[in-house]
Design a binder for these strands. Structure first.
Ligand code: NAD
Ligand code: NAD
Lengths: 219, 219
DNA sequence: ATTAAGTCGTGATTAACTTCACATATTCAC
DNA sequence: GTGAATATGTGAAGTTAATCACGACTTAAT
């Protein structure tokens, strides 16, 4: 691909920058510095300049960055004009929340369909998204390449296997199960129970100083 | 604190190890190697051995680790016997999901109370957790030190300010807002829209190889 | 007792990312 | 114009974490 040299850490921050630049533009601001951006998104200003520099010289010394220009640049870079269709598997507590939300704000992703094993749920719609039976998954999935997994952990391996066979390439996994996939399938785990436990652990074992800020408090 | 030298990356994996060791014990296994663990939690076996080694020599060469012993050790290290009380702010789509779930499995954290601004919700219970009005937050919060934030983004700064004044030390922030806190308060951002966008970005710009696995597919 | 297989713990290395610090360029007020 | 203020882009240094690779020890089988 074009820019394979961009660090993954940078790539993960791009949507954040993009979102904030959109806010700025809606407020009518035409210009922004890395320092301003830094305060808003809580990322060190040097890191922001470094991140931007991977794409070339986007700013002007002594001036900063032009919001309009930067926004246009990121719109292209982040493929904001192409819609990526997503499937959601498991319409329980979490799945329902995601369907209602559906990542509507300024996004290039949309949950198009959902699956569940519960006949009570099948046939209904939530947030405009139709819910089909899990048995019909293969025939309904079509060309969708990204799935959100919000089923019970013990179902995760079986369903993942089926998703992979059907050609899914990206999975956002909310189950505690560490699923096994071939090398060409990307899985991002979001393990909410662990996030909470880790936060508690850090609070007890890594106390922060009121002043001094040696230790960063977000990461 | 006792073990301030443990890398943050290691600390974040501890709950994961702990959970899997629990599973092993329930299956009646008495012994486990770093290789087996590695396959289950998808962390390199050398990394696992290094992680454990920060706590001393927990294993035996040629044998592996004793499940019972390791589990006992981590129970203490992760303070699994102390309950950390948590408050949830904003009982909407996400908040409701968390209340129903309430991190019940083998956990040392519990959502004790919730707050919302909507009079329809106030006075009810979800998953056994009482919902109070946000106006009563200060008087109800008591000594709770950890909060989960699931309110609309534009409310985030105002509520955060109040939480900080009341003495909250850890916030799990699900809003897209990058909240501002003093140095002694720890915030973990979980930005679900960005996680999805980042996954899509990686799929398009960092294609993985079917074989070879140069690039790790989870992180 | 000897040997082969298994596994840990860790020094050394490599890799990824962040932050410092400053030369350089631009803007703005007067 | 001129000078002060501003802010980028980046080489260099620093930080953190992942991985390699192997000596040392354990187990179990013959
Ligand atoms: N809700 C939370 O706050 C929370 C927090 C942390 C982790 N999780 C994890 O997220 C996952 C979902 O959690 P939840 O609270 O939404 O659970 P849930 O039980 O409310 O929902 C699971 C849904 O999956 C459906 N399902 C079951 N088997 C299925 C199958 N084979 N195919 C398709 N659908 C199937 C069920 O009918 C149900 O609707 C779980 O793995 C859970 O551990 C949830
Ligand atoms: N639901 C999702 O899938 C999802 C995904 C990504 C991000 N988020 C973010 O998570 C947050 C919550 O999302 P949601 O879908 O649950 O929203 P929601 O609108 O369903 O719920 C928000 C809740 O907060 C309450 N509230 C509003 N102002 C309040 C105040 N001042 N004090 C206390 N309570 C107040 C509302 O009454 C409502 O119950 C939002 O910031 C959203 O951007 C949600």
């Amino acid at each position: 691909m074009d820019q394979n040299k961009i660090p993954q850490a940078t790539a993960k921050r791009l949507p954040l920058y993009y979102r904030f630049l959109n806010n700025l533009q809606m407020q009518g601001k035409t210009r922004v510095s890395s320092k301003e951006l830094s305060e808003a998104v809580k990322v060190d200003s040097a890191t922001i300049r470094r991140d931007f520099s991977y794409f070339g010289a986007l700013g002007k010394k002594g001036y900063g960055y032009n919001v309009e220009y930067l926004l246009g640049f990121f719109r292209k870079t982040l493929d904001q004009d192409e819609l990526t269709e997503v499937a959601l598997i498991g319409v329980g507590n979490l799945g329902t929340a995601f369907l209602n939300y559906n990542f509507t704000k300024n996004n290039n992703t949309k949950i198009m369909l959902a699956f569940d094993a519960d006949p009570e749920k099948v046939g209904k719609e939530i947030g405009g998204v139709p819910i089909y039976h899990i048995d019909d998954m293969e025939e309904r999935l079509g060309n969708v390449k990204v799935a959100i997994l919000t089923i019970p952990a013990q179902e995760a391996d079986r369903i993942t296997e089926r998703l992979v066979v059907k050609g899914i390439k990206g999975i956002l996994n909310f189950t505690p199960a560490r699923i096994t996939v071939p090398d060409d399938v990307r899985v991002h785990h979001i393990d909410l129970a662990i996030e909470l436990q880790a936060l508690v652990y850090f609070l007890k074992h890594y106390p922060l100083e009121k002043m001094g800020n040696e230790e960063e408090n977000t990461y």
